[in-house]
Design a protein around this nucleic acid. Structure first.
Length: 216
DNA sequence: ATCCAGGCTGAGG
DNA sequence: CCTCAGCATGGA
């Protein structure tokens, strides 16, 4: 019989086994943002390759990205796959920040809910990409319901509903979490998935003895 | 060769 | 509201 644990207890157990610090090192907030788009449904190695050429051409600066032609940008990020849409999405996001003079302080001072809504209106930015950008580039705490999260929760006996429903469900039980907590939680979930191929290797992991109870 | 990876959009029930 | 094909590279 598995021991039933809450979300908070899950966080604590993971924190005792995984060091989330230093995950996703980036040279700037801009690098995080383009990376969040490039990683959509692809693997990190392909993104890393795209990042090298994107940095060489633009130093990740949105002004320089907007100065590239669509063809140039596509060529630059090609290795990340789905490049036609991703190039457009990157420019859409760069244009969004253009309306704030590329001044991130003018963006981060907005209320987090409004900001998230605005970001979701940008074509190519869905809920997960928005949350990752909000959390790692714009200093807003969000729970990211990505594939890794769903996979882990499945192994812990929880089948999460659609994105926003799942996010609300979880965040309401983490109401005293700080930005750092949310970042740690997401990082640890990713790192766990990289350590253990799920669902096959779950039973040999340190989380095998547990069953997650969301309502608890 | 197939399958997959840190999703999203748009069309169609 | 929900489902699902298409997107596209590079590695296993």
């Amino acid at each position: 019989m598995k021991k039933e644990i809450s979300l908070i207890e899950l966080y604590d157990i993971m924190y005792n086994h995984i060091d989330p610090n230093g995950w996703w090192v980036a040279r700037s907030d801009w690098e995080i943002m383009w990376g969040a788009i490039l990683i959509q449904n692809t693997n990190w190695k392909n993104v890393a390759k795209a990042n090298i050429s994107l940095f060489k051409k633009t130093q990740f600066l949105p002004q320089k990205i907007l100065a590239l032609s669509d063809e140039e940008l596509i060529e630059t990020i090609k290795s990340a796959g789905s490049y036609t849409r991703k190039a457009k999405t990157i420019k859409n996001l760069a244009n969004f920040f253009n309306t704030y003079d590329f001044d991130l302080e003018k963006v981060t001072c907005l209320p987090k809910k409004d900001l998230r809504k605005k970001m979701l209106k940008i074509s190519g930015i869905g809920p997960e990409t928005a949350d990752v950008i909000l959390m790692y580039a714009l200093q807003k705490g969000e729970f990211v319901v990505d594939t890794y999260c769903r996979r882990l929760f499945n192994c812990l006996g929880v089948d999460l509903p659609a994105y926003n429903k799942a996010k609300d469900l979880i965040e309401i039980r983490l109401d005293n979490f700080t930005l750092r907590h949310y970042q740690n939680f997401h990082a640890m979930i990713v790192l766990f998935n990289q350590d253990y191929k799920l669902p096959t290797q779950f039973e040999k992991s340190f989380l095998a003895p547990y069953k997650l109870i969301i309502a608890k």
